[in-house]
C-alpha cells in the first residue's frame, strides 16, 4: 500500500532528507553569520524549520504548508498590504477545511476528538487533512523533527567544543 511506503521512511530516503537538511541549515547559518548584525534566536529557528521543510520537499502536506507560512511571513515584511490579502484568503481556506472535517468525524469519543483537534493545530496543515492523512503526516513530521533536533544538537555541541 502506498501509505506504508510513505510512513516507513527507508533508511536511504531518510538519510537523504537528513543530508539535505544538514546542508541547507549549515548554509543558512553561514549566511546569518556573514552579516555582522547580532543573530536572533528567531532567525536560527526559522532557518531550521525552513531547511527541514525544503529538505522534505513538496511531497508532504506539512512541509508545503510550513514553507508557505514562512514565505508569508517574509511577505509580511516586504509588504503589509499583500500580507493582509494572503492572510484573509488563507483564513477562508482554513475555515472551510475545518468545517468540512468536522462533518466527517462521527463516531469517536470526546477524548479522541480532543486529541485530534490538538494534533491538527500542531502539525502544519493539519486543519485541512483528512483523519488518516493526519496520522500519516504526524508520524512523518515527528521523524523529521527528531532528526532536526538531533542535527541541531550535534552542531551546537561541535561549536561549543571548538
Amino acid at each position: 500500500m502506498k501509505m506504508d511506503h510513505h510512513i516507513g521512511l527507508t533508511s536511504t530516503h531518510h538519510g537523504s532528507i537528513k543530508t539535505r537538511f544538514t546542508h541547507r541549515f549549515l548554509y543558512a547559518l553561514k549566511n546569518l553569520n556573514k552579516n555582522k548584525k547580532p543573530i536572533s534566536y528567531h532567525k536560527v529557528k526559522i532557518a531550521a524549520y525552513s531547511s527541514m521543510a525544503s529538505a522534505v520537499g513538496s511531497t508532504r502536506t506539512w512541509s508545503r504548508v510550513m514553507l508557505r507560512r514562512i514565505r508569508r511571513r517574509q511577505l509580511r515584511r516586504a509588504s503589509s498590504v499583500i500580507f493582509r490579502r494572503t492572510i484573509r484568503r488563507a483564513k477562508c481556506i482554513k475555515n472551510n477545511g475545518a468545517k468540512h472535517q468536522k462533518n466527517k468525524v462521527v463516531s469517536r469519543n470526546d477524548e479522541e476528538d480532543e486529541g485530534i483537534s490538538k494534533l491538527r493545530e500542531l502539525v502544519p496543515g493539519g486543519e485541512i487533512m483528512e483523519f488518516s492523512s493526519l496520522l500519516d503526516e504526524s508520524a512523518h513530521y515527528i521523524k523529521c523533527l527528531n532528526m532536526q533536533v538531533q542535527i541541531m544538537r550535534n552542531i551546537a555541541d561541535l561549536l561549543s567544543s571548538v
Binding site: L32, I39, L122, Q148
Partner: peptide, 28 residues
C-alpha cells in the same frame, strides 16, 4: 496515543526553541 503524540510534538518544538537559542549564542 493521540494525547502523547501532541505532547511529544510540543516537546520537540520546545527543544528546537532551546537549541535555536543556544546556536544563536554560539554563532556570535
Amino acid at each position: 496515543v493521540l494525547q502523547d503524540t501532541c505532547n511529544y510534538i510540543r516537546n520537540l518544538h520546545q527543544e528546537v526553541d532551546d537549541l535555536s537559542e543556544r546556536l544563536s549564542g554560539l554563532l556570535e
